[in-house]
Design a protein around this nucleic acid. Structure first.
Lengths: 395, 395
DNA sequence: AGCGTTAAATCACGACTTGAAGAAAGTGAC
DNA sequence: GTCACTTTCTTCAAGTCGTGATTTAACGCT
């Protein structure tokens, strides 16, 4: 039902520019020769397009490599300094703004904790705009060379026009964050769910490298997921796909904070695990509490049983992902996921093997994430970068 | 991570041909004028490409319509007689082969029941090839004008090379059906899961028309689903995505025929429902049994409770689909689904509202399918048709 | 210095879309 | 019946693009 709608001979050029740029970005320095081999373009076209890219300053030479006996091939790479990217992480406890170059090395960052004043929208917007100004000032970067700003937020983001955010956990109801931010900056704006940006980061630079179909499961206080279908994040009709945490694992089961019963999140998130632990020491943060639980499981049978049960639920949840999405890789991330992963993953894998269909299970590898929660910022910066690469460098 | 790989100026033409062909196919007779407006191509190109298509016999004129005062516009449509399509349904109980024209009107069909001899591979292959020969003979259709053969099978199909089928329910283990069929015919071959072909048919001609993101849930003896993401069926890494029936709804719950516990299919499929019905009359077929159960629920509280429970499980399963895929539409199909739908859907929707997240639930409509099980054949014929349209008519 | 080898640049050619200008096919007024 | 007008469709010059063959560049080896 989707009508392709491609046109002029000019789009062709843009497409090929994009392909070259992308390939060069991910496969590091390459010669024109290798680019031709990999992309299928003729040597003539490569020469032509690369010449243009070099003239535009997007690509630069990166030394040469001998070629047994003949003219050495000159290597090419993306000019990391050609532009800047801004990544913003609006987390549950802080707002972090970072400036990157095109190679996504961090040049400067600011970090503001969100105190009990909570997530007042005006305040958060101000923090973002201030952070943006600060990182630009600190590095002396020229505003005109910032390719775009990516923002990761804890909530569902309606893509399009105003970039409206629905963030249940931070009490944001239909906040037109895009419109609000545009009052303070004219830079191109991208906003997405923080879990999705983290997933994107894992795909590009972490445990997801090379996979086409993957699910990045994010376990923190609650549980979320980022589904990668055919190399790109899957959003669904209203950008809320991948709400794995509220998958039902127990009809009529334990009450979840979303109001339903028997959700995965009612058993597996840090919050739920601590609530289920009768002997939880009072007054600890979730991080400390979870660490205590893991420690206690060494000697306390009740705590150990709790972890075993959690592993079974996690495994069943993973099995659902396998059955429904058939990914080649499932990556467990999020601060709690990374914490409980080493302890629970073997048992969870066993459970997943039982609950999933045999054939797709054998096709899936289950791994721990490689990037910590800080990667949300990198992932956010990934959004304008993706646009940059897709468009073949703006024009 | 996916490197676009587009090339020559010739692909452009193919793309535009395809866009025109597709648009003409789905939006019925249109004038060149309207085609230009809808696809964005210039009048010159339209004229050029359409001229080619008419010369190739893919498109033909379909009358004219006056235009207040000026030259009347001539309407164009796909030439339904330009080629033939074959659809094959390898079901659990029969093998059906049908010949269609390009408009997917059925020209001839054969239907062979599969007796207890079961699904012996050689036998099935022979039935397909015989059926193919028969429909060609009956209609006098020229073999050279058959664009391709689509086959729907009950099992997972590895796309690529040999088109290997893994069909647990019919005892097919790694059957290279593609290779086997190619010994008897040289027509282009497409094989896919029967649930997916039925889903495709619903999307093109049934309850799914116009949706970009949808899930077609198929309830028969067991339970399956066809996930449509961005207008095309989502397969996952190994073509086994959408195994909704084995989603876990009850950790440690009822044993399912797949070996796991608490699967949706252990509660909602026809087989499971009858097994759970203590008062099931013996000796009935599943169809008759299910009808009896629905009848008994009018007066027997136990049967009524069984149906209510089933509705809750179905609702929870639907909620999982909503949370994970965020579709705009969920379509309940399959013979059992169509049978129990009118009775269970209201209660199931209520349950889904409870188990799903509020925001995506409000974005989703839940409907009954419009096509019966016979549509598997049409859906199968859809496979070569899709290829025909994508390629802009073979060349 | 000359030869062989490999990498990159150049250029004629064919294919493509566009946009403007022209041809076709009607209506309606005189 | 003719002429002006409107709308649709076709034709054609102009500009762009990728290819593939040919040149030019850059190096090692003898």
């Amino acid at each position: 039902m989707t009508y392709r709608r491609r046109q002029t001979v000019r789009d062709l050029r843009r497409g090929n520019r994009s392909a070259l740029l992308r390939h060069l970005y991910f496969e590091g320095p390459l010669s024109r020769q290798e680019l031709g081999r990999d992309t299928g373009l003729s040597a003539g076209s490569i020469s032509n397009v690369i010449g243009e890219l070099v003239a535009d300053g997007l690509v630069e030479e990166a030394g040469a490599v001998e070629s047994d006996g003949g003219r050495p091939r000159t290597l090419l790479k993306i000019a990391a300094g050609h532009g800047y990217l801004v990544g913003v992480d609006v987390g549950e406890t802080r707002v972090r703004v970072a400036l990157f170059d095109l190679a996504l090395t961090e040049l400067a960052a600011t970090d503001h904790p969100l105190s009990d004043s909570g997530h007042d929208v005006g305040h958060v917007v101000q923090l973002i705009l201030d952070g943006l100004a600060a990182v630009l000032r600190d590095t002396g970067a020229d505003q005109d060379r910032v390719l775009g700003v990516g923002v990761g937020v804890p909530g569902i983001v309606e893509q399009g026009g105003d970039l409206v955010v629905h963030g249940q956990t931070i009490d944001w109801e239909s906040v037109p964050l895009g419109r609000l931010l545009r009052t303070g900056t004219e830079l191109p704006l991208h906003i997405d769910n923080g879990a999705k940006t983290l997933g994107q980061a894992e795909m590009w630079f972490g445990a997801g490298r090379g996979a086409k179909h993957a699910v990045i499961a994010l376990i923190g206080s609650g549980v979320g997921a980022c589904v990668i279908a055919d190399g790109t994040p899957y959003r669904g009709a209203a950008s809320s796909a991948g709400e794995w945490g509220h998958t039902t694992l127990q009809v009529g089961g334990r009450r979840c904070r979303c109001g339903a019963r028997g959700c995965l999140e009612a058993y597996v998130g840090a919050e739920a695990m601590l609530e289920r632990w009768d002997a939880a020491p009072p007054g600890l943060s979730e991080q400390e509490g979870l660490a205590a639980l893991l420690g206690a499981a060494e000697r306390d049978p009740a705590a150990d049983a709790l972890l075993s049960e959690t592993a079974e639920y996690l495994g069943a949840g993973i099995a659902d992902l396998i059955n429904l999405f058939n990914p080649e890789r499932i990556i467990i991330g999020g601060w709690a996921g990374l914490m409980i992963g080493p302890r629970l993953l073997p048992a969870a894998c066993e459970a997943a093997a039982e609950y999933a269909l045999h054939y797709p299970f054998t096709q899936t590898s289950i791994e721990l994430g490689m990037l910590g929660p800080d990667a949300v910022t990198v992932g956010a910066a990934t959004l304008p970068l993706a646009r940059f690469l897709d468009s073949g460098g703006s024009p």
